[in-house]
Design a protein around this nucleic acid. Sequence first.
RNA 1: GCGUCGGUCGGAUAGCGGCUAUUCCAGGAGACUGUAAAUCUCCGGCCUUCGGGCAUCACUGGUUCGAGUCCAGUCCGACGCA
Length: 396
Amino acid sequence: MKFSIEKELENGRGRIGKIETIHGVIETPAFIVVGTKSTVKALTPEQVSSLGAQAVLANTYHLYLQPGDNLLKKAGGLHNFMNWHGPTFTDSGGFQAFSLGVAYNSKVSKISNGDSNSDDKEEIEINNHAKLVNIDEEGIDFKSVIDGSAHRFTPEKSIEIQHNIGADIIFAFDECTSPQASYEYQKEAMGRTHRWAKRSLDYHKSNNKNAQALFGIVQGGRYEDLRKESAKIIGEMDFDGFGIGGSFDKEDIYTAVGWVNDILPKGKPRHLLGIGEPIDLFGGIENGADTFDCVAPTRIARNGSLYTKDGRINILNAKYVEDFGKIDGDCVCYTCKNYTPAYLSHLFRAKEMLAATLASIHNLYFLVNLVKEIRKSMIENRFYEFKTEFLGRYYR
RNA sequence: GCGUCGGUCGGAUAGCGGCUAUUCCAGGAGACUGUAAAUCUCCGGCCUUCGGGCAUCACUGGUUCGAGUCCAGUCCGACGCA
């Protein structure tokens, strides 16, 4: 993998660049499409490609459980198996430390809106009994979400699995924490993530035969001193690039990204893990993130929500039943060019599978294209104007 | 005409003398940020000073401290017999 910066944002940390992999180039900044189980839900790779996506991110935990990383190896790797021949990423399974841990069976999101009350703490207590993970210094015991069977991930194991899966860019094994975790816990988990980063890197260096790139992951929650410490420690390790992970406060994701990116080495790419609301993309790019991934566009699509330039809409609302106009104004995606709100409304109400496909195409196009527009605005030195104009309309 | 069974929210249901009338679907709204997710949450008689108050199980009476539930009659429906 090779990364180059072509231009930097004036009065900001942003950059325009490109990541070159043996499976193709990613022009950054870029929105990476999530395909957890080696498929972008509801879409064929041809559809993903034709809506403009440059790369796909799959998940180590899920593919390890099903169909198994050895099967992917036999299939000739992720690209061949899923018939996506562009660049790919795999997440390390570190997010599942959170989603199947304290977040299991709860409403806790990795993005906190600030207010934490006693009810939440009570909920966390309950979840400690239900959770499917147990974390110790050496690694994480996971229970399978498929059949409840027990599995153990260590940094070495995660990298071994990712080598078998064969994505172009892979991530160090980390622990994604809850935004509600205490400072003390964030610090403890961060220290563990740093030790795991070193072990991930060591294992990778001595076993990487396929020119895969390894990204280290910065943690530290919402605390400035921890974020900076993490960026320094991870940034000094010999990774090919970096992920910025973990939990954030909704209002200052960008602030935290800025703290980190001022410390990380400039010449290597930075991936902001799991972030992807329009406002977050502007904030992340402005503060020096190069790539993003997020389940939101495909998940909310399947649940009937669509991005429009005037904000999110719920196509299941009664007002769309007889709306034969446009879904999103002058949008040129396949869905908008060919179908009306009334038709999508019908497909969702009738629970037809095409609903998920058409909505996913639109939402992915919306975000992929938004990042491309942001990139273009940076090239043309009008990033701030574009940001003000877009967000002013989106959140009006 | 006789007999049997039955009428509970838009539909389908539970409820077998007692407290807030159950559940599913349809309907209305909301949520979703490195996917446990084609998922989840809330609303659904009227009034309210937000404490609560008043209704309601086809209809009319009755029994009872208390009735969707028991009794009688009426209306409606299904089935059976003529």
